[in-house]
Computed example of a mutant assay.
Amino acid sequence: MELRDIEIFLTLAEELHFGRTAERLHVSQARVSQSVKQLERRIGAPLFARTSRRVELTPIGRRLRADLAPAYQGIHDGIARAVAAGRGIGGVLRLGFEAPGVADLVADLLDAFRERHPDCEVQIREVDFADPFGMLRAGDIDALITLFPVNETDLVAGPVVYTEPMVLAVPARHPFARREHVTLEDLAQDRVLRAANPPAPYWIDPPEPWHTPGGKPIERGEPLETFQELLAVIANGGGICPLAAHATTYFSHPRIAFVPFRGSPDVGWGVLWRRAGETARVKSFVDVAAKFPARSGSPS
């Protein structure tokens, strides 16, 4: 089976229209029909049900599409990676950040990559607070610096590039605001806010309900769509929220206090990319990150 015939079949399975398929692939409609007929003869069964008004996949056609589509995409991704490797690392690396402030905290890493590949431009993008993996999966960015751990079958977790303690963001008039520190057990004493539709909270098993390490239940607050919305709700007494310590500097607010955690493990920010999207630029950035000493931060 020729690769072009597979492309015609998959395109027709998507368009369900011979004319649009031919136009999209820049071939004649007769070429599309011929390719489909040859494939059906080889399979020994119809792949499409055709009437004067519509074209539909048969059950065998649907199964063939499900089997061929991932392999076909893998071939194209492999060719793209080979082309990128053959042409070098020039071009644009689109690097997303779950927390924009972390881009400043790993500036030395970004400088090291630019020095090694001066012909590659690094574009910094902020990802959606409520869906940090969305832009990566959509192909809008090439790699993502995000909070670890991450365990997603379609994504690859690379090296950690920055670590820092946690702080608890509380209203300025909250009793916790007068403390020198809090512990994870204190989370049971107030409503803990969260992002809307966040990825799986890997640090909790099981994710529902939330408990402190000592087993105390944690009240989960309303889901919030943006980080600025989160800060506004905290400032107005709507709850508390654990944050990475750089928030103390980057998101200072007159009505919010940031209280250090005692006994809480540090959090790490690491490099994440699509398993099917490992281009030469991504691989080179990961190589630099793996050899670059991870920076550590502390509350200001």
Rank of each mutant, 00 (worst) to 15 (best):
A80I: 03
R54S: 15
V92E: 14
A130E: 10
A45F: 09
E98V: 12
R262Q: 13
A257R: 14
P299Q: 10
P293D: 02
P171R: 03
G74Y: 08
H26W: 02
A200Y: 12
I234F: 09
L155A: 05
D154M: 09
A85V: 06
H246R: 13
D266C: 08
V192L: 11
M166T: 08
V83H: 11
E98A: 15
F97W: 08
A289H: 08
F129L: 08
A177L: 12
S298E: 10
A82K: 08
I256R: 05
F48E: 03
K291I: 00
R295L: 13
E115F: 07
S300T: 07
N197Y: 05
R116P: 01
T183L: 10
R191S: 07
E2V: 00
L16R: 15
A69K: 12
E2I: 03
H253S: 05
T58E: 08
P198Y: 07
F292I: 09
A172N: 02
R255P: 00
D104P: 00
D205P: 00
L39D: 02
R94A: 06
P265L: 09
H117V: 06
M135H: 08
W273Y: 15
L155N: 03
E23R: 12
Q38P: 00
I234V: 15
P254R: 06
Q189H: 13
V36K: 04
L105Y: 07
E56C: 03
R275P: 00
A290W: 05
V271H: 04
G19C: 01
A294G: 04
L68Y: 11
A290M: 11
V122D: 00
P242E: 02
Y202D: 02
F285M: 10
E2S: 14
V167A: 13
E14A: 15
D140N: 09
K216Y: 07
A232P: 01
R31D: 00
P206V: 07
G239P: 08
C120H: 05
E222Y: 03
H211Q: 12
L231E: 05
L25S: 01
R137S: 04
K283W: 00
I240L: 12
G91H: 09
D287R: 14
P213S: 09
C241T: 05
P132M: 07
W269M: 14
H253K: 09
T51C: 07
N236T: 13
L12Y: 01
P149H: 07
V55R: 09
A169G: 14
V259S: 06
R24A: 08
A85H: 10
E2Q: 12
Q228A: 15
L39M: 15
G158E: 03
F292K: 06
T11S: 12
S28K: 04
V102F: 09
D119S: 14
S264Q: 07
R63M: 11
G61R: 09
L193I: 12
F176H: 10
V233D: 02
R4C: 00
D77Y: 11
S35W: 00
A244H: 06
I43A: 12
R41F: 05
Y162Q: 03
G61H: 09
L57N: 04
R62W: 01
P46D: 04
F113E: 01
V259A: 10
A280K: 04
V182S: 06
A112W: 06
Y72N: 02
L136P: 08
E208M: 11
E126D: 06
A103W: 09
G158D: 04
G86W: 04
G86T: 03
E40V: 11
E121Q: 13
G268L: 08
V167W: 04
A294W: 04
A103M: 10
L224P: 04
S298C: 03
D111Y: 05
E222S: 11
